[in-house]
Structure formats: C-alpha cells, structure tokens
Design a protein around this nucleic acid. Structure first.
Lengths: 247, 247
DNA sequence: CGGAACTTTGAGTCACTTCAATCGGTGTGG
DNA sequence: CCACACCGATTGAAGTGACTCAAAGTTCCG
C-alpha cells in the first residue's frame, strides 16, 4: 500500500531510503474514526502529532453563535500539528469530515525524524505550504465571488489529491457536504448549492454521490484564477547548492 | 531598549544575553523606505529575510482585476520571511503602508542565529503565531460582519503593538487608510468608512489623524469576539503545565 | 494657494442570506 | 417489505449587508 505521507513529502524532494523507512514506521497502524468526530479541540493542551492517512478532516474555529469557519481541509498525507513542540494549547479544533484513518505520532518519534536533514526540510516545507494555503484562502474568501471561490477550492483540492495519488485523472472523491464547503468558503449552504448548479450548467464540473468530476479544467482554473504556485511543488529541486538543514 | 525584535521574541520566553546581542547586531542599520513601496514581489526568487523595525507594512496578493487582499499586517518586530531557506519563489508580495524602516538580514546571519536553541525556538514560535493569525483572519472574514471584523482587527493590532511597546494605553498609531483596512478585511473602503462611523457612534473608538483610541476595550472585544489565545503569548513559561483560571 | 489623497455622503443595485418547504436517498425497526 | 425518520440537496420568496457609482467635503503638503 502507498505511504501517503512519503508520497506527499517527496513532492518536495527525494528522500533517502532510510528516511522513507522511518515514515513507513510512523504511518503504520492508523486508527479508524467515524465522520464528524473531533480529533482535537480548541484549548486542549498540545499532545501527539496527528496525520490523516485516509478520508477527509478539517481544522475549524467556532463563533459564539455557532457559526463555523473551516480554516483548512486535511486530506491524506496532511500532518495536523507540527507546532506541538512550541505551543501549549490548540487555538483551533480538528475534526473528521468523513470516516477517516488517523495516526497519532508521539513527539519523540517526530523529534527522531527531524534529526534527519532531508526529513526536517520536508516537514518544514509542508508547514510553509500550509501557511501559503491559508494566505490563498484569505484571498479567495476576501475577494472572489461565490462561483470563483468554489472553482478555486476544487482546483486546489484536485492538485493536492493528485499529489498523493488520490485523483483519477480529473475525477476524485469529495466526501463532504455542501454545508461544509460553505463553512470553508464563508458561504451559506444554500448559496453553495446554487453556485454549484451554475457551475454544472456551465459544464465545468459534476458533483454527485460524493464524487467530483472536472469537465473543463481550463475554464475552471480560469474562473477561480487558480495558479498552483503557492503549493510550492518541486521546491526541492534546487540546482544551486542549498543550505544544509539546521541540526 | 528599542530593539523591537528582541522585545517581541521575549514575549515567548527570556533570551540569553548573548542571543540578545545577536539580535541587536542584526537589527542595526535599517534602511528607510517610503510609503506604498514594494519590498518583495510575488514571483521573486527568495533572498534576504526582511524585518520591519518601524512603520507598517503588509503582505498582499492581487487578483487580475486589480483587487487586492492584504493577508497580513507587518508591524515593528515582525519578520517578513522566514521561509527563505526552503521555498524558491515568493507566493505573495510585501509592501510598506507607511514610511518604514526595514532591515535586510542575510541568510547566513539567520542561520547563525538559529544555531542558538533559544533563538531557534523563538523564531519558530513567531512563525507559528503568524500562521495562527492567518487562521483567525479567515474566521474574521468568513464569518463576522463588517463591524465585528473591524473590532477584531483593532483588538489584534492593539495586542500586537502593546507587545513591542508601541501602544500608549488604549491608544496607538495606525498609519493606514480606510481603503487598506478594507483590503485586509474583504470590505469596500466605503463600507469600512460607514462601519467606523457606527463604531464611533457607539463610543467604542476614535480614529483620526492616523491615531486610534479605544474608548471601550471591553465592548470592543465583545463585539469582535476577540480572545488573544491565538497569539500564544507567554508560551515559553512552561513551569506550570495547567492554565490558571482567573475568572 | 492649489492639487492630491483620503474621508464622507447619498442613491441605487446586487450578491448573498434567512426562512420555509419539498424532494430524494438511505438506514432502521416493526 | 414497508413505514418512518434522518440527512442532504434543492427550490422559492423575501430581506439585507455590502457594493458600485458619483460627488462633495477634508486634510495634507509642496
């Protein structure tokens, strides 16, 4: 079976076999979680690092009136919390969106991995990409109208899922509800619904039974003004000598 | 006394004298930049690390139609780009909002500093707080209405400026335009204007001649649902594992 | 003093929201 | 095997927060 974590991290640069073994060990024996269950809650003291191996999860924050903002989608290969070593409490919650397999990696194991320069750099890369995605989402929500937001989100998820081998051409599983898409994009579920219908009417995509098919990738990218530069793929292929990782 | 970087980093935890000397050296001889000038542009190859010593700057992204989203405000003490070591190109631009003093720190100097454990942890903390701020902004823009957004932003800036000694009680310099506030909050300048008038009418704050005065901190915090937990202050004081419950 | 930049005001419009049903698929228990 | 319940998707209608356009008032500054 594929190691989604290794697969993702190697998008940054190749890893030594030893490092990949470490990753394989870390990802073994995931636990199964049902849909809509919290993995960590805001305010919790930081503990293990979590990794999604299968299914969808999200980071989210709540308002007092119950409104929810999803601030990140976590797909297989995504590490939930690298900041465990520095911060004391969670400033957001993490929950599954679909049934999922999650691995709890003890701090010690992470520390062991960060001794390896290539892994340390790869983890750092993943963290920086997460941050870049946040900036892109801010642009998405702050400036684009509903159809563009949805188009952009779908292009991003497509790119990220392709990275870990979870897209079949222009088709991928999207096991989340329209309400959840709304929570991520700052839109009401109803408006997400109507916008999706418009996208379908334009023959840009199909979304049924939790499966999304991109019918016209070019026009969808154009509509969402999607450019994948912020995902910083192939960042490790530096031709000129790079600084060694600290350590 | 006026090393804003040291001041900010010590909000995380005390630094050895040697480390503080390193910071002092790094912050010396800043260059002066006028308002509204780009420091780095999206697409540029990564180079030096930049640090704002005085004045306001921002990270921003543009849409094809010219719409701008400010994805972060950079105030004195804020490091612009710690990710220089990993990523090859900028995925966003950085510009001054007011006249500013900026230091360009060469990679080598940063590497030297990250050899010191306390400094390395402090830099990591700063990076993680930046990320937490992005999540909070996403919540702000995605879920709150205009007045709440503005209230929240002002509370955050107040907290961050206090950290580096740039707030005089509930009063601080805010050298940016209403249009720029709008670009940060996903609102039109006109709507920012009307919302500010409403906040003034409620006797929550004053904003004139680029000086902001918070008249009623409690009600402003309530309106913006502001809680500073995401700024992760005092994260370094790890002797007590549990948080005190002061109220 | 004049001009540029910023703020303020007014009026009309639109994107998105809320409320209120309805429809459809799926799972459960009788 | 059907009745019921539940959840998610869909539809309709009405309301509103925020936008655009246009213009006037202020402040800043050479």
């Amino acid at each position: 079976m594929d190691n989604v974590l290794a697969r993702k991290l190697e998008a940054f640069g190749p890893l030594p076999d030893d490092d990949r073994c470490l990753l394989d060990a870390a990802v073994s024996s995931p636990r199964l979680i049902g849909a809509d269950e919290d993995i960590v809650r805001e305010g919790d003291p930081t503990g293990d690092v979590h990794l999604v191996v299968e299914g969808f999860a999200c980071r989210y924050k709540l308002l007092k009136n119950g409104d929810r903002q999803i601030v990140a989608f976590l797909v297989p290969g995504d590490i939930c919390d690298m900041h465990v070593f520095i911060l004391r409490a969670m400033d957001h919650s993490i929950a599954t969106l679909s049934p999922a397999r999650v691995v709890d990696i003890p701090r010690a194991r992470i520390l062991e991995m960060t001794e390896r320069p290539a892994l340390a750099r790869a983890f750092w890369w993943a963290t920086l990409v997460d941050e870049a995605i946040l900036r892109e989402w801010l642009l998405n929500i702050g400036q684009r109208e509903a159809e563009g937001r949805i188009a952009h989100l779908i292009c991003e998820l497509h790119a990220r899922l392709k990275l870990v081998g979870l897209a079949d051409g222009d088709r991928f599983a999207l096991p989340i509800t329209q309400a959840e898409i709304g929570d991520a994009l700052g839109l009401s579920a109803i408006h997400v619904n109507r916008s999706l219908q418009s996208l379908r009417a334009q023959n840009l995509l199909t979304l049924r039974y939790r499966e999304l098919v991109i019918l016209d990738p070019d026009r969808l990218r154009t509509l969402g003004e999607f450019t994948p530069n912020y995902l910083h793929l192939a960042g490790g292929k530096r031709d000129r000598p790079s600084e060694p990782a600290p350590g």
